[in-house]
């Protein structure tokens, strides 16, 4: 690993100032993507700014109709949280399917969303659960957050502080995991907000997206069979050694149908 300067600020303002003053800084959250990437010398930031010392980034709270998760909350904490399991069990279940136990004990939601891996699990939840992403500068609607492959609405140096998920009447997440990495080959979260249905898809395109054709079909009839004639348009499905674009499109439909069957 290349050498770098390490900083551990205790406030957001201090972190942002460090970022601005450095040549090529990276924020360190759980580090489960960043550190292996640096080990492989695919990334070589001049400075690492560890966010673990900033108290306000930790913690889980539930408010009226919302589950609010601090950016540095680890996947294992979300999976085991009584508050999340009570209010939004689908999110706890999704967090429990990320990577493997060791990764879940370190990896955090804010880092995962800032990285925006096309096969990560949380992006499906951000879209389907109508999340709002709070940063040290503003609030970003989940619908406006994912822009492309590893590309988000975050500006350079901007720090995610908290993610607020809207609690639906019912929801379910179904994922077809890569058997080695546990990343989603295709993952679909279907949420029913009393008739208004939202469908978030991850793993299938350059970044997570809402399957609007599925949402319209499910608003008509919340039934797995309603998806048989609905086709997702305007998305270029990923094609790689794990799955062809055609197979991924098929998996997205099957995962969505299974999710609907599960939530009914």
């Amino acid at each position: 690993m290349h050498s770098f300067d390490y900083h551990k600020p205790s406030t957001l303002a201090e972190a942002a100032a460090l970022h601005q003053g450095a040549e090529d800084a990276a924020y360190l959250s759980g580090g489960q993507t960043l550190l292996p990437t640096m080990n492989q010398r695919l990334a070589a930031p001049s400075d690492l700014i560890d966010l673990a010392g900033i108290g306000e980034l930790a913690g889980i709270a539930t408010a009226s109709g919302q589950v609010c998760i601090g950016a540095c909350t680890r996947h294992a904490e979300v999976a085991a949280s009584d508050a999340v399991r009570g209010a939004l069990p689908t999110l706890a279940s999704l967090a429990g399917q990320i990577g493997d136990p060791q990764v879940r004990n370190r990896g955090a939601i804010g880092g995962s969303l800032a990285n925006s891996d096309p096969a990560a699990d949380y992006p499906a939840a951000v879209l389907a659960l109508n999340a709002v992403i709070h940063t040290d500068r503003r609030e970003i609607a989940g619908d406006d957050y994912f822009l492309g492959l590893f590309e988000t609405a975050l500006e350079p140096g901007e720090i995610i502080t908290r993610i607020d998920f809207a609690v639906p009447a019912r929801a379910a997440y179904q994922k077809f995991p890569n058997p080695a990495s546990r990343f989603a080959v295709a993952g679909v979260l279907v949420a029913d907000y009393s008739g208004d249905v939202r469908v978030g898809v991850t793993g299938a395109g350059p970044c997570a997206f809402r399957a609007l054709a599925f949402e319209a079909a499910l608003a008509e009839s919340l039934d797995p069979r309603a998806l048989e004639g609905a086709d997702i348009e305007g998305v270029i499905f990923n094609s790689d050694l794990h799955a062809s674009a055609e197979y991924r499109a098929h998996l997205v439909r099957v995962m969505a149908q299974r999710a609907v069957a599960q939530l009914l």
Binding site: L28, Q32, P36
Partner: peptide, 26 residues
């Protein structure tokens, strides 16, 4: 050395983590 195989698993405050995906300073 890339957070995949788990041979470097240790406990940090009682929880299993991969010691190749953690800086000593952390």
């Amino acid at each position: 050395d890339t957070c995949q195989c788990g041979a470097c698993t240790v406990h940090l405050d009682g929880r299993a983590v991969k010691a190749c995906a953690l800086l000593a300073v952390q």
